[in-house]
């Protein structure tokens, strides 16, 4: 092949990925990027790879404060000790049956934090922001209580059943991957990415959920199920890469979704603005950047204050 090697192109693509990782491109930068991409099909491909790697690396947030960069290359065990204090808690959790009578092992995330919790059976729980679980494993069952927040359960095959409880909702799973969302003042939701689960609430008869199905509401009165596309399931998991995805949600709903991830509130006083639909992928921990992007596309103003950013109509020039 003539010209640059793949590795040289990769290095340039990585430069662009780092530039866009810092902040949105200026018009001049965008023009320069467009020109570079138009030069060679391989530039576009390398840039796509670089961006994919940059986004994938956002998952490192789940390594948590226990991750020490100066440590020697970690062993398999090192990974298990990833989260702060996880080594100790895991040692307790693996004693299995002994834990049965107690209240189990608790894991929690604070606002904006992600955590990945590997369990003794090979299952992995990913915790979204402000979430709390309690793990109760015994010789004949695997039970997890999602006390608050949202989690993705990647369940390993095992002779013991795997049960997640969230309020009055109970999810029974085999080797599957599914999320449960248990937020204040909202019905518990369940979405299945892979495999199948059974969902019950109170004395309701169990409802079978297959991959790409979502229980949008699970209460003792009603279990409402909808089929969704794999893309929708994917969007619902954008938090694993520190993103929030919207597809036609109102700005008002978007503002409360951002509130889950950051102490900075997005305030919208004008109900007409709050009803505007929004679509796109945004950095979860950057409500200010989101508000500025929204302001630019809706012709609004975003005033950044102490602990809040206010979206309002720009006053016409006097």
């Amino acid at each position: 092949m003539p010209g640059k090697t793949a590795s040289e192109i990769d290095a340039q693509a990585a430069d662009w990925a780092a530039r866009i990782d810092r902040a949105p491109l200026t018009e001049t930068e965008q023009a320069a990027l467009d020109a570079w991409l138009a030069e060679d099909m391989r530039h576009l491909g390398a840039y796509g790879r670089a961006r994919a790697v940059a986004i994938h690396s956002e998952r490192a947030a789940a390594l948590g404060s226990g991750f020490r960069p100066s440590a020697p290359r970690p062993s398999r065990r090192g990974f298990l000790a990833g989260g702060a204090g996880m080594a100790a808690s895991l040692a307790v959790a693996t004693t299995g049956g002994l834990m049965y009578a107690t209240r189990g092992e608790a894991y929690a995330t604070h606002i904006g934090e992600l955590k990945v919790v590997p369990l003794s059976d090979g299952s992995v729980v990913s915790l979204n922001t402000q979430s709390r679980i309690r793990v109760l494993y015994s010789h004949d069952k695997r039970e997890i209580h999602l006390e608050d927040g949202e989690a993705l359960f990647d369940v390993a095959r095992d002779a013991r059943p795997f049960v997640v409880r969230a309020g009055e909702t109970k999810v029974l799973a085999d080797a599957t991957a599914f999320t449960v969302r248990h937020l204040d003042d909202q019905p518990v939701q369940v979405a299945v990415k892979r495999g199948a689960v059974s969902v019950t609430a109170g004395d309701k008869a169990p409802v079978r959920l297959l991959a790409n199905m979502r229980a949008v509401e699970t209460t003792p009165e009603r279990i409402a199920v909808a089929s969704v596309t794999p893309a929708e399931i994917d969007r619902g998991l954008a938090w694993r890469e520190q993103r929030i995805a919207f597809e036609g949600e109102t700005l008002g709903d978007a503002a409360s979704e951002f509130r889950r991830y950051s102490d900075t509130r997005i305030v919208i006083d004008d109900p007409a603005i709050a009803r505007e639909p929004i679509t796109g992928l945004f950095q979860a921990n950057d409500p200010v950047g989101f508000s500025q992007a929204v302001a630019a596309s809706f012709g609004l103003k975003a005033d950044v204050g102490d602990g809040e950013v206010r979206l309002h109509r720009a006053k016409p020039p006097t």
Binding site: L37, L44, G48, A52, H56, A245, G280, L281
Partner: peptide, 17 residues
């Protein structure tokens, strides 16, 4: 002109990488 959206970059990171 081809541009790469964040959505597509995320899709690449999950389903191709």
């Amino acid at each position: 002109m081809t541009r790469l959206s964040d959505e597509r970059a995320l899709w690449l990171s999950r389903h191709v990488l």
